[in-house]
């Protein structure tokens, strides 16, 4: 079992023939992801990486019954691509692109929600169900199959956490990189219940960072609804106020969104919070062996 995606999930790629799209689509195919085609306007009818190319998402969905789209289009065209996917009946859009204007994502997410389409990202590594389906840019080899679910705002910290978990002799069910932009798709609060309901997931790792209050919302949700152990790390304990730390959303405004307040809220909700990111794997092993 897993959440959201598995080996049967039919995936198309928007921005299929571009440099990034091609490189990562090929990696996904090699991993075993069921990529059934891609979309690049004006290249419909061609074949790319052995898969059909379509002019529009609608055509791609009609021809392939794809339910998930992996989006690689440049930042200025992300909102358009997301809305096109929603309009075509895609169920989940995984938006890898970094640097989409916030206003564009505001409209795109509203439309996606209206159409019942879930989104992951933007500015994220994507989602991977270990040894089944990789939709994104993560190095697949570090995600060994196991019983730990992973939710993270950061790409490389996701790899770091998975690597540590695997070194402890454990593994991952599904890992979701939710992205670090001010407006993102699925977040902790929507993903936690999916992991709670997944019979194979026995523990959940959540990695957050400074800025916004998604981790605080998650803490409140965990306290009331989650029975599986949750291990958390919040990045940016040493970040100065008012400075943007790489991710567009990673900024402490005034006194809101600090790592400290998030760590305290999570601890109060019974979450196992680690102070150093080097201790994530160890803590997971400790909690699961109890």
């Amino acid at each position: 079992m897993s959440i959201l995606v598995n080996k049967d999930t039919k995936v198309i790629v928007q921005g299929f023939t571009g440099k990034e799209g091609s490189f990562h689509a090929e990696q996904c195919i090699n991993y075993g992801t069921n990529i059934v085609g891609g979309v690049t306007p004006n290249k419909g009818g061609q074949e790319h990486l052995g898969k059909p190319v379509f002019n529009t998402v609608k055509e791609a969905v009609d021809a392939t019954d794809a339910t998930v789209s992996m989006i690689f289009v440049p930042p200025a065209f992300v909102a358009d691509a997301v809305m096109e996917a929603a309009d075509a009946g895609i169920e989940l859009a995984v938006i890898i692109t970094e640097g989409a204007p916030v206003k564009d994502m505001m409209y795109a997410k509203m439309y996606a929600t209206k159409k019942g389409m879930k989104t992951i990202g933007p500015n994220c590594p994507g989602i991977i169900t270990a040894e089944e389906c990789k939709i994104g840019i993560m190095p697949g080899m570090i995600f060994k199959k196991g019983n730990v679910g992973l939710i993270s705002k950061s790409g490389t910290l996701t790899y770091e956490a998975s690597n540590q978990v695997v070194k402890e002799g454990l593994g991952i069910t599904t890992a979701v990189g939710i992205g670090g932009d001010p407006i993102i798709g699925l977040s902790y609060k929507q993903l936690l219940p999916m992991f709670e309901a997944d019979p194979e997931t026995e523990a959940i790792v959540m990695i957050g960072e400074i800025g916004g209050d998604l981790e605080i919302q998650a803490a409140a949700y965990i306290k009331e609804n989650i029975t599986k152990p949750v291990i958390a790390f919040i990045a940016g304990q040493t970040a100065p106020k008012g400075k943007r730390m790489g991710h567009a959303g990673a900024i402490v405004s005034g006194s809101a969104g600090t790592a400290k307040e998030k760590m305290e809220a999570l601890e109060a909700a019974g979450v196992h919070v680690v102070v150093s990111p080097a201790d994530i794997g160890k803590k997971v092993a400790e909690v699961l062996k109890k």
Binding site: G155, T156, E209, A235, G246
Partner: peptide
């Protein structure tokens, strides 16, 4: 982003970059 400490960091990814600062602080 410049800070006041002694250990220069070069990291890939914003989250891991912050996490690396935190790990240094923790040590």
């Amino acid at each position: 982003v410049a800070l006041d400490g002694e250990i220069g960091c070069m990291v890939n990814g914003a989250g891991l970059a912050m996490g690396t600062m935190d790990a240094i602080n923790y040590m």
